[in-house]
Design a protein around this nucleic acid. Structure first.
Lengths: 195, 195
DNA sequence: GTGTACATGTAATCCGTTACATGATTCC
DNA sequence: GGAATCATGTAACGGATTACATGTACAC
């Protein structure tokens, strides 16, 4: 009991999963993975299947979610679906309101490569940036598409806002890559960084 | 020997540390941490001290770096400094040119909170966004300051470019937060998401 | 009959952090 | 006397991934 007071000791990913459930739907691990792939993914990396399954177990053990089996009369295999409990709602609400917001963490593969530009041929650098540009544009378009398919109810206003944010974010990523391509072009002609 | 062919089996962080050494300087773990805090940090999270120390050991065991102790005549404690080897240079060069670039990974705490907006009071949301705005502006300014203090040699042209990129990136983050603040303001007046 | 999507889960592994231990020097 | 910076490392833990195991249904 002495430890039970700490409701915010779960890792961030747990809260993210509980957050997915906080919209009230009854979902399977599979569903959650799919959903997180096309929503969290834009601003928070999407956890793997196996992690989602173990987070769900953890949440259930904590009393924040309950599960039941659904026997598939026909069709696919039986599935276990999860639903948030009242305690879960209270906990995730408290977390959302009171837990310190951890700062954004970025692991930008393409920029790491650029930073080590003295080890690459300029053509390879251009390739990397073009690839990143494409990636960003693809993500942007996906965010737009998802915005169109989004529900119009009140609770979904905020996910819709973050999709809008994502659209702008990836547009910016795309433009930043373009700007860097220009910067590279403008570099003094090879003072000695030819490998 | 059969496994020695795989030069690109190191984790990304190892390559990042080896990349830091690829500029040719002889550096201690402490130095590397300090340096990565004010360079990698803008686009790649900065590893902890303990991880840097263990990466250095790994690199040394792989033959990509050598170390020696420097006896501090006076002043602080003895230190161990690392230098990249020829094999290390070859390996990191090969990695930079040929290893697939892994896509950017983002874990955006503030946006996760926004996504769960139906769980927060609007004032708290504003607080979160204002905090993020400040964070972004602080990072931006730091990038600018570092650009000014940067070396002007050829090999440092690319780190300088990424600093420029970082400056723009954090400017964009700041503006994106501002835009979202406006979007929230423009939301229909509380259809039922008061907690 | 082969591949793909649905569906759940375990085991092994490892990446990375936090906490801890140690100790000298300098500045207030 | 005490805090801060320099400096290196170990131990414990836990977060997260990959690989593996298993099985159904459906489309081509």
């Amino acid at each position: 009991m002495a430890d039970e007071t700490n409701t915010r000791t779960l890792p961030a990913t747990s809260w993210a999963v509980l957050g997915l459930l906080s919209f009230g739907e009854e979902l399977s691990g599979y569903d959650l993975k799919k959903w997180s792939d096309w929503s969290l993914r834009f601003f928070y990396w999407s956890p793997s299947f196996s992690q989602i399954y173990s987070e769900l177990k953890r949440l259930e053990k904590a009393g924040y979610a309950t599960s039941r089996m659904i026997a598939q009369d026909t069709g696919t295999r039986d599935k276990r679906v999860y639903r948030i409990t009242d305690e879960g709602m209270a906990a995730v609400r408290e977390w959302a309101r009171e837990a310190p917001v951890d700062p954004p963490v970025l692991k930008h593969g393409p920029m790491l490569r650029m930073w080590l530009g003295h080890l690459l041929e300029p053509e390879r650098m251009r390739e990397v940036l073009l690839g990143h540009q494409e990636f960003a544009e693809k993500m942007r378009r996906r965010a737009v598409a998802d915005t169109e398919g989004a529900k119009d109810e009140a609770a979904w206003a905020y996910p819709a806002l973050t999709l809008k944010w994502a659209e702008r974010y990836y547009a910016s990523e795309r433009d930043l890559a373009a700007a860097m391509l220009e910067d590279i072009e403008a570099l003094p002609p090879e003072p000695g960084n030819r490998p």
